[in-house]
């Protein structure tokens, strides 16, 4: 039976009544729901209108170093004079607040939005780490039954507020650190449907290759034009060894670029000292001539070229 045709008790036999469907009736219900949703989108657009390039750092796979790449890339560009912000979209497993040296910093509460704190190299940032008591898990108020039904909506709304209600001001780059899970990439694209680019972070691991390939497919399906691959933990360069030591048995970085046709924007070696500095809130980025530093220097160069350079969209 057609969904818009229903037999109603009392109608003449054989005369099904036509009931208009949702799209056939006016939106003027007085509920103002559509207006509010459109208003939310407008606030996001208005706030992001002063940002030159919004770039997501994604993977789909956890543990590949997205946050560390975000932090080090952000400071690398900031030290070149760019105005940079970072948004930690990993609400449940935040780490960018710590990595950017923002722990203990406060937001300034203004009527037009909250002013984010300034972290390493002058980078602005927001993360749930700055909003929660130490070691407290992220939990939302609400009825205990069927939490799964509304948690996703709540988290999407919070991310929307991170975009629309933070006084980002004029930025050259806003980097958004996307949590693991290809669904989280989709959620980001719902909020920012036309990012300047997405950096896909992977490792040589074969397992990472499988997951990251799916993320690339999702990004391409969504029409994202600028996608770059960042191969993280490509090897361990010990001062005592002539050749880099492999951390993984696979060759996933090369295989990803070959299978997808995407360009490798940077290969970043594993460096325990640089990792420790990043974890401690002082990401070194491209600050020295180490292999790690050179890798981020090259990545910063490539990002500037790949998204059209600073202020491209201003």
């Amino acid at each position: 039976m057609d969904r818009t045709e229903t037999d109603i008790d009392g109608e003449a036999a054989g005369e099904p009544r036509k009931v208009r469907g949702y799209a056939e009736v006016s939106h003027e219900t007085g509920s103002e729901l559509l207006e509010q949703v459109l208003g939310q989108r407008a606030r996001v657009s208005a706030r992001l209108g002063t940002i030159g390039a919004i770039i997501a750092i994604a993977s789909g796979k956890g543990g590949v170093g997205k946050s560390a790449v975000t932090a080090n890339l952000a400071v690398s560009l900031a030290r070149r004079g760019a105005r940079v912000g970072v948004l930690d979209a990993d609400l449940n497993g935040p780490s960018l607040g710590r990595m950017m040296g923002l722990l203990g910093s406060k937001f300034v509460d203004r009527a037009d939005g909250v002013v984010p704190p300034v972290g390493a190299a002058g980078v602005l940032g927001i993360s749930t780490e700055l909003l929660l008591e130490e070691d407290a898990p992220l939990r939302w108020k609400g009825p205990d039954s069927d939490r799964f039904a509304w948690l996703g909506l709540t988290e999407a709304a919070v991310l929307r507020e991170f975009l629309s209600d933070v006084v980002w001001g004029e930025l050259d780059y806003l980097f958004i650190d996307i949590p693991p899970g290809t669904d989280k990439i989709g959620r980001f694209l719902d909020l920012v449907p036309d990012p300047a680019g997405v950096l896909v972070v992977t490792t040589p691991s074969e397992v990472a290759l499988s997951v990251v390939s799916r993320s690339v497919a999702m990004l391409r399906d969504a029409g994202v034009g600028s996608i770059g691959v960042v191969g993280n933990m490509s090897g361990y360069y010990s001062p005592d060894a002539e050749q880099p030591l492999a951390l993984f048995s696979g060759d996933g970085i090369r295989r990803l670029t070959e299978s997808t046709g995407l360009e490798l924007w940077a290969e970043i070696p594993f460096d325990p000292e640089m990792g420790a500095r990043t974890d401690g809130g002082d990401p070194p980025g491209a600050s020295d001539d180490s292999l790690f530093g050179k890798a981020f220097h090259a990545l910063a160069d490539r990002v500037e070229r790949g998204v059209g350079g600073r202020k491209a969209a201003l």
């Binding site: 037009d112 909250v114 709540t154 919070v158 507020e161 991170f162 209600d165 933070v166």
Partner: peptide
């Protein structure tokens, strides 16, 4: 600003 975040968070 950030009303949903602030009203919704437990252990802020």
């Amino acid at each position: 600003p950030m009303q949903q975040t602030r009203m919704g968070l437990e252990s802020p």
